[in-house]
């Protein structure tokens, strides 16, 4: 096996929210430093309020961090904390998948197109994108009769599998998972875990938050502990 290289290096990442109307500053993540390697799973752990989800959102550029760097390695490397918006969009489209416990997708779109969307967004023709989507949906064992239906009526487990299928369809280098098995029944959770293992095998670098310590033990190669930001940081 080849030596696993870092795909993402996060260093000194801090994020606080300033709420102008109330004149408040709410610290959320403080000085997070870690790396995520190809073919390995890094688990973010820590108490509620330690900023685990915040770190994922900063990496995805949904949140703008106050300090720190978020280097997506490549040629050239990209600092997601400071790069321009188009570079961030490009990284999202090609390199990074972000799967939360909620399925954010266009309403009214058939499941197969929801899953195919990341491919069509990078210019893959629709028929090929749909074919790749069907392969992913089959792997995640989503019943075929659901493929042409919009996921709005799906159960939590079914939605989550659609979500993961979409995250993996364009073969991202970095997969971020925020409680991917939360509130799933046993069988759905097992299917999701199997898909995570397969992605790891395929060399995807994975950064994950699990609510279940047993999953951290079973899946994580590296564990990063975040602590709640110090109260002193609250002064505006």
């Amino acid at each position: 096996m080849s030596l696993s290289h870092p795909v993402l290096s996060v260093s000194g990442l801090s994020k606080a929210f300033t709420i102008h109307q109330q004149g408040k500053r709410i610290p959320s993540a403080q000085d997070a430093t870690f790396a995520v390697h190809a073919g390995r799973l890094t688990a973010l752990v820590g108490p509620s309020g330690a900023g685990k989800s915040t770190v994922l959102k900063c990496i995805y550029r949904t949140y703008l961090p106050q300090a720190g760097s978020i280097i997506l390695h490549g040629d050239p490397p990209l600092d997601l904390a400071t790069c321009d918006e188009h570079a961030a969009l490009r990284a999202r489209a090609r390199d990074i998948a972000y799967v939360t416990q909620f399925l954010h997708c266009l309403p009214r779109q058939p499941t197969v197109d929801v899953v195919a969307a990341p491919l069509t967004a990078i210019g893959v023709p629709l028929p090929q994108a749909r074919e790749a989507a069907r392969i992913r949906l089959r792997e995640l064992d989503l019943p075929e009769r659901l493929w042409d239906v919009a996921p709005a009526t799906f159960s939590g487990g079914e939605r989550q599998r659609v979500n993961l299928a979409r995250g993996l369809v364009h073969r991202p280098r970095l997969l971020m998972l925020d409680e991917p098995t939360a509130s799933l029944d046993r069988r759905s959770a097992d299917l999701v875990v199997a898909a995570i293992r397969a992605a790891k095998q395929a060399g995807v670098a994975i950064l994950a938050i699990f609510h279940d310590p047993a999953l951290v033990a079973a899946l994580a190669d590296d564990v990063v502990e975040l602590s709640r930001p110090a109260e002193a940081a609250c002064a505006a």
Partner: peptide, 19 residues
Amino acid sequence: ESGLTDQILEDPQHPYTQQ
């Protein structure tokens, strides 16, 4: 303010956008 749409909606920076 300008930015990625999800950032504007989830982490708005300017007081007006927040409002």
